[in-house]
Amino acid sequence: MTGERTAGSPAPDELYERLKAFEGRTTVQGGEGRDPVNEPMIRHWCEAMGDTNPAYPGIAPPTMLQAWTMGGLAGHPAGSARTGAHDELFGLLDDAGCTSIVATDCEQEYPRPLRPGDRVRFDGVIESVSPRKTTALGSGYFITTRMDIHVGDVLVGTHRFRVLKYAPARRSPQPKPSPQPQPRPQPKPQPASTARAARPRPVVNRDNEGFWEGVAEHRLLLQRCAGCATLRFPWLPGCGRCGSPEWETAEASGRGTVFSHVVMHHPPFPAFEPPYAVGLVELAEGVRMVGGITGVPYDKVRIGMPVELEFLRVEDTKGAMELPVFRATAEEAV
């Protein structure tokens, strides 16, 4: 689906020129955080994330940056500093058939930490619109917005958020089998190799490429801070405990327990067969990571269940890749 049009929509080149005109347009100007940076919200965040860094709540965790700009369930008050540029851009894409959206990645920069009592203000801009791209999901445009966050006149953070606004790819309808009485199917462990629709590929960047190189070698690599020896995952450019940018790798044993989990039913995606379980696994080394849970039916996964790492080789329309997943131990699978 590279050049399809809906009735009345502009030609792809013409559409792109219209989209490019949005680059540099302001989406928020002079926005203000609903609440000052405060210790209770920092504490709730740290408890949810399991972050015991002693620096908090004296400062806010850097990854909370966007939280201070959000309007909460009630949204931002009427008359806030948001413009209509974002809605106008997305309306143009909707009219052109790009009615679906998926977040792809975000980048944050932290020039200085936020402290309790800080009052943040923020300005947003549409930073870039890509040419039309064709992906496994469909054909559309990558939209990058940037938010600059200040305390007074001091820049304290920058948040870039990128989405793909696309027209879903058409898929051939599957013939429906004749209705016959069938026993209730029992979920089976995921096979070691499966050929199916393309799975989403992990985003590999300069901060985490070493992790994925380890996965390709069937090694689960963590980072160990060279300053305070704290283990961390996911991979980050610096230590959240002492701030040191120096680190080395440490290979995890692969043993862990399910700290939390969800069962995915919706939305359906061709590369997966719902329902299936996704867990937050606490490794024996003390860090946590997200991964698929295999080896037992999805409804038998439980908090505290012991699991062991295995590497799943997936072959699909994009080729082969290795993924770390967690299998219930033999005692649990009985």
Score class of each variant (00 low, 15 high):
Thr6Asp: 14
Lys176Gly: 06
Gly75Cys: 10
Pro173Ile: 10
Gly279Asn: 03
Leu92Asp: 02
Ser130Lys: 05
Glu23Val: 05
Cys242His: 07
Asp148Leu: 04
Ile143Met: 00
Tyr298Leu: 04
Gly256Cys: 09
Arg327Gly: 00
Ala103Ile: 00
Phe142Leu: 13
Arg121Trp: 04
Ala60His: 04
Val301Arg: 01
Lys20Met: 00
Asp35Cys: 03
Pro191Asn: 11
Lys188Ser: 14
Ser193Arg: 15
Pro62Thr: 00
Met1His: 14
Thr104Cys: 09
Glu88Ala: 15
Ala330Pro: 00
Lys133Trp: 04
Val314Pro: 06
Lys176Asn: 08
Ala78Cys: 03
Asn208Val: 07
Thr83Trp: 08
Arg121Gly: 14
Ala333Cys: 08
Glu4Ile: 03
Glu248Ile: 08
Pro191Glu: 12
Pro12Asn: 06
Thr69Lys: 02
Thr230Lys: 03
Ala328Lys: 06
Gln174Phe: 03
Asp95Arg: 15
Glu285Gly: 05
Gly292Met: 11
Ser253Glu: 14
Leu73Ile: 07
Ala250Phe: 13
Arg219Tyr: 07
Gly84Gln: 15
Arg34Glu: 10
Met41Thr: 11
Trp247Gln: 12
Ala60Pro: 00
Ala7Trp: 04
His159Asp: 14
Pro187Ile: 09
Arg219Ala: 05
Arg115Cys: 07
Val262Leu: 11
Val290Tyr: 12
Pro12Glu: 08
Thr99Met: 04
Ala136Pro: 01
Leu73Ala: 11
Asn208Pro: 05
Thr294Glu: 12
Glu17Gly: 10
Met264Pro: 00
Gln108Phe: 13
Val120Ser: 02
Met41Lys: 08
Arg206Thr: 05
Ile293Leu: 15
Glu308Gly: 13
Leu236Thr: 00
Glu14Asp: 10
Gly97Tyr: 03
Gln174His: 11
Leu221Thr: 08
Gly71Leu: 10
